[in-house]
């Protein structure tokens, strides 16, 4: 104690130390549950064959990656996964933006109702909600029955195993995230700025394109990154809605990993998906930031 009292105090250093201590748990968590498995995955992906009891450490090689890059099948399923992510992102943003805008314009019970309705999919178990869609989309399912009774369609509807159905359900799953982000982004725009534009002679379309859209671009970019990375690597929705009819990369990763017991190839496919998603989102964010000159200005 006497020693501590005699030492010159340095509040800045103590504060820095405290911050570091507070970060420690999350760092430890990430290290054990994220970084270590990732390193293991990379390691695994370079094994030439499945490790076995006889051969715990097979020789390293890039054979798996060469295999993936030279096989049109893998390229096709990779492209499918990215395409699913792309269309889901577009659909989610197009639907969420007006909803988020509407939420910022209302108040009271109406706002509560719409906010809850938007967030509800988050509270429902994914499998349950997907099965709900399954029943709706089934040939001779609910949607078909309604359309048939109106005389709009004859014969069985083959919607279930199609790309639009897959993108539709993924969109439904991701709307809550996008709405949440976009509402806060739209709410951050002071009404004064919109009024200023009105006074300067701007009509609604101009206000939207010159003011609201650029000012919410960070929120749009964040939503897009989130929705894209989640939907491009989604497994549950493709397996239940698309089944094996629409082959996307995550389905193959799962079957190589479990059914075919080829962990190195499954690991290599995972790494390919990871790198592609990270690279695409990074380039997207960078491009958008350059276009909107983000980082140079701040909200005032």
């Amino acid at each position: 104690m006497a020693d501590a009292a005699a030492r010159p105090r340095n509040p800045d250093r103590r504060r820095a130390l405290l911050s570091a201590l507070l970060l420690l748990p999350v760092c430890a968590l990430l290290l054990v549950f994220f970084l270590a498995p990732l390193i293991q995955l990379v390691n695994l992906s370079t094994f030439a064959q499945q490790p076995s009891a006889q051969n715990l450490k097979p020789p390293h090689s890039l054979a798996n990656y060469l295999n993936i890059l030279s096989d049109p099948f893998y390229l096709q399923i990779t492209a499918n996964a990215l395409l699913v992510g792309f269309w889901t992102t577009i659909a989610t943003l197009v639907i969420s933006y007006p909803v988020a805008y509407y939420i910022t314009k209302i108040s009271g019970w109406e706002r509560t109702l719409i906010s809850v309705a938007c967030l509800l999919p988050l509270f429902v178990n994914v499998i349950v909600s997907i099965l709900g869609w399954y029943i709706l989309l089934l040939p001779y399912g609910v949607i078909q029955q309604i359309l048939s009774s109106l005389g709009l369609v004859t014969g069985s509807l083959q919607w279930l195993r199609t790309m639009p159905a897959l993108v539709g359900v993924l969109t439904y799953e991701h709307i809550p995230f996008a709405v949440l982000i976009l509402v806060s982004s739209l709410q951050a725009i002071p009404q004064d700025k919109i009024n200023a534009a009105r006074l300067l002679g701007a009509g609604i379309p101009r206000i939207f394109f010159t003011l609201i859209l650029p000012l919410t671009m960070p929120g749009l970019v964040a939503s897009a990154i989130l929705v894209f990375s989640l939907s491009a690597s989604s497994y549950l929705v493709p397996i239940l809605i698309g089944a094996q009819r629409i082959k996307v990369l995550p389905l193959s990763i799962f079957s190589y990993g479990t059914e075919l017991q080829n962990w190195p190839l499954a690991a290599a496919l995972s790494i390919v998906l990871l790198i592609l998603v990270v690279a695409i989102t990074y380039l997207f964010a960078r491009t958008m930031n350059r276009i909107t000159r983000r980082g140079e200005w701040e909200m005032v």
Binding site: P190, D192, K193, N195, A196, A197, R198, L199, L200, G201, A202, G203, L211, P214, L215, T292, R293, W297, E298, M299, V300
Partner: peptide, 17 residues
């Protein structure tokens, strides 16, 4: 927008971007 006025707001309401 059709009133042809100039308005300086308390917050100045400049367009930050």
């Amino acid at each position: 927008r059709k009133r042809g006025l100039g308005l300086v707001f308390q917050s100045w309401a400049l367009f930050p971007h």
